[in-house]
């Protein structure tokens, strides 16, 4: 059985059919890239899988359990974490506290009211280590609002990563970032994902990046899955080329 298995997902906003009958699966430890032009429905699909949106129709199963109507918190407990296309951070908290908060929440220690956060050495060490993994250790005490765009993107991913998920959904982790930084981010992400044995769904526009890192590629267009396969298969697929070029 696949790790995640979604069937017949639909979601409309008024007249717009953002996701229009999508079947989608992710195997354990698999790195799947989700590609497609702007407005193809990628973010909406991620929102449905992560629980931000409830589908109009269809079902989602994770590790053989139906999670279609399960609230966000329980999905996170089950092991699904996500990052955001438009960065979502705790802007006034330091980078360290951002990550540490994910750790506290994961460990159920946010209930501790009369104990200083600073006293939890484990959380501090682990958070610093994660910051190091993402190359943010120098910025540990900078408020998230004071970080550069690339750093914010990384921190957003780091928050999801700190939850120790089984499946991580990354919505355009490299958008709005310079080309050089892009490689760094994707290297870091791919490495961490593989070292931990996570499964990952990555929304990405840069086809070079996609071909380099993915095990499998899913191409969306106007709310539907247009093509899917290994990087080689996709490279050879003419529909993909036209869809990409047609928009570009």
């Amino acid at each position: 059985m696949p790790l995640l298995f979604a069937q017949g997902l639909r979601k409309s906003f008024g007249e717009t059919r953002a996701v229009d009958g999508v079947d989608f699966l992710v195997e354990s430890e698999e790195l799947v890239s989700l590609v497609g032009s702007n407005g193809a429905g990628k973010t909406t699909l991620v929102n449905l899988l992560s629980g931000l949106l409830v589908p109009d129709a269809g079902s989602i199963a994770f590790q053989d359990a139906d999670i279609t109507a399960v609230p966000v918190r329980d999905r996170i407990k089950a092991g699904i974490a996500r990052s955001f296309q438009l960065v979502n951070l705790f802007d006034q908290l330091s980078a360290l506290d951002n990550v540490r908060l994910a750790i506290f929440s994961r460990d159920g220690t946010t209930r501790q009211v009369l104990r200083l956060a600073e006293r939890n050495r484990h959380a501090r060490e682990e958070a610093l280590e994660i910051l190091r993994d993402f190359g943010l250790e120098d910025k540990w005490d900078t408020p998230a609002a004071g970080l550069a765009q690339g750093e914010r993107k990384l921190l957003d991913v780091a928050l999801a990563y700190a939850l120790r998920p089984k499946l991580i959904l990354l919505d355009e982790p490299t958008s709005g970032v310079g080309t050089r930084e892009k490689g760094t981010i994707m290297d870091a992400v791919a490495q961490l994902v593989q070292a931990r044995g996570l499964a990952a769904v990555i929304v990405e526009h840069d086809m070079d990046v996609v071909f380099t890192y993915s095990h499998r590629i899913v191409m969306m267009h106007q709310g539907k899955v247009l093509a899917e396969g290994t990087p080689e298969q996709i490279r050879a697929d003419e529909r993909v080329a036209t869809a990409l070029l047609g928009k570009a």
Partner: peptide
């Protein structure tokens, strides 16, 4: 306070 949506998505 800073970000209700993200707080939800770290499981709070």
């Amino acid at each position: 306070r800073d970000n209700e949506v993200r707080a939800q998505f770290v499981g709070i």
